[in-house]
Design a protein around this nucleic acid. Structure first.
Length: 422
RNA sequence: GGAGAGGUGGCUGAGUGGCCUAAAGCGCCCGUUUGCUAAAUGGGUGUACCCCAAAAGGGUACCGUGAGUUCGAAUCUCAUCCUCUCCGCCA
């Protein structure tokens, strides 16, 4: 949600920003709804003030007195009018709220123009592919022992497509990755949280999954809970409707969770193997920052995610997402894509974003400056990192002619061996 | 799942239909006093929105949430969520 004052005071900024994002929004409807709403509020409040003062008079009158009776008749009419105006206010506010929610966040000035993912800018690349990709590399699903290590068929039997079992040393490698990611985040100053995997509708609304992405989440209908599509949801909502101390900013947290995504409507060859799953593991970095610092903090956040890929010796590139391709609530977004040497494709393993005050406004997360009024914080998040595609890149890039996979140095402390093979 | 008790400001906690503009205490902020600290003492201390060009000022709402009764609701009624105690079930 945008600051309502922006509409009134800087409508051109809003108009330009939305145009850059290629969103179709009826800004005139937003302005008109605000006008109607304010008029209704003023009318109601005047009527209510009148009623309040009359009631105060009545409080001092003897109950059965003629003057009391006269006033009573008069106030019955006033009361009906107040009720009517109150109803108008709530209708007007509902309309205004609905149209306001259709307005996306405004992209930052540093975000490049563009319409689709083809217009995203390559910000930087890391890693010498010739040196880091094994000549034996092949798509991970073609590795001889793949189906023993990551068992999709048993997953289908037990649950359905996209819910694989990781078996034996592969399960151990998954656990090593989680441990490694969390330890890296800890040393970068993020406080670890272990979060609920089901959230209520209020939480899913605050971070923006509802109402837009309702069909993308699994829904436990008996209790009206949603399975989290990312740790961002529970971790960000930790501070929902709270006022933080300015001195505590930036608050930095990291959470490991499984993530659940219905991914309705996606299928095909490019989603084979580990590329796209209904349940997957992810370590998520979340920050709550001072508004003046959020874009600096975004660069640091991206650096924190990049460092992990570097330590794993995985070549990657950083994309600066163009205005037409960044999400609805994002102001600026970088994607980290790892090179999967077997598939010879870039795979997105992290998306680092600054939501400015857009999400904080929905979620009611603010801070109290030393002097002055409370303000909304800026929220940021980024994966640090998503597991399956990192795992895919490790398996492909490090595949040896003998069919074993060399485990990156950084993981061995947690994995306990230097190769994996079935 | 059943029975009972409860949900009030940053915190504790009073308030059972009308000066509630929510007592009192604690905490916090600004003073005064005081070798320092402490103590004492005076004052202040929420959020959102509306009116006003702005400031000053004025107004409205908010006592878990939502409906209702009433001229008037923190207070009465209903629903709902949550917390605690006991019982049941259970990893």
């Amino acid at each position: 949600m945008l600051d309502p004052k922006l509409f009134r005071e800087q409508i051109d900024t809003v108009r330009k920003g939305i145009a850059r994002k290629k969103f179709q929004v009826d800004l005139e409807a937003v302005l008109a709804a605000d006008e109607v709403r304010r008029h209704a509020v003023a009318e109601f409040e005047n009527a209510r003030a009148l009623q309040n003062s009359a009631n105060k008079e009545m409080a001092t009158m003897p109950k059965g007195s003629p003057e009391f009776q006269a006033k009573l008749a008069e106030m019955k009419a006033a009361s009906a009018r107040v009720k009517e105006l109150e109803k108008k206010v709530s209708e007007a506010e509902e309309v205004w709220k609905q149209v306001s929610l259709t307005v996306p966040n405004i992209p930052h000035d540093s975000v490049p123009e563009g319409r689709t993912e083809n217009d995203n800018k390559v910000h930087s690349t890391w890693g010498d592919v010739d040196q880091l990709i094994s000549p034996a590399a092949k798509p991970h699903w073609d590795i001889a022992w793949f189906s023993k290590a990551i068992d999709f068929e048993r997953g289908v039997k037990v649950t359905g497509a996209g819910f694989p079992f990781y078996v034996g040393d592969m399960a151990r490698l998954v656990r090593a990755l989680i441990q490694f990611f969390l330890e890296e985040a800890n040393s970068a100053g993020y406080t670890e949280v272990h979060a609920p995997l089901l959230v209520n509708a209020a939480s899913a609304t605050a971070t923006g999954q509802l109402p837009d992405k309702e069909g993308q989440m699994y829904h436990a209908q008996t209790d009206d809970f949603y399975l989290i599509p990312t740790a961002e949801v529970p971790v960000t909502n930790f501070f929902r409707d709270e006022i933080l101390d300015e001195a505590s900013l930036p608050v930095k947290r990291v959470g490991y969770t499984p993530c659940f995504r219905r991914e309705a409507g996606s299928w095909g060859a490019h989603v084979r193997g580990l590329n796209r799953l209904h349940q997957f593991d992810k370590v998520e970095l979340v920050k709550w920052t001072h508004p003046n610092e959020s874009f600096n903090e975004l660069e640091k956040l991206r650096g924190d995610a990049e460092r992990i890929l570097q330590k794993l010796n995985l070549p990657y590139r950083v994309l600066l997402i163009c205005a037409g391709d960044i999400g609805f609530s994002h102001s600026k977004q970088y994607d980290l894509e790892v090179w999967a040497g077997g598939q010879k494709r870039w795979l997105e393993v992290s998306s680092c974003s600054n939501f400015t005050d857009f999400q904080a406004r929905r979620a009611g997360i603010r801070y109290r400056p030393k002097d002055g009024k409370v303000e909304y914080v800026h929220t940021l998040n980024g994966s640090g990192l998503g597991l399956p595609r990192v795992l895919a890149a490790i398996l492909e890039n490090n595949l040896q002619p003998d069919g074993s996979v060399v485990v990156p140095e950084a993981l061995r402390r947690w994995y306990g061996k230097d190769t994996i093979k079935f």
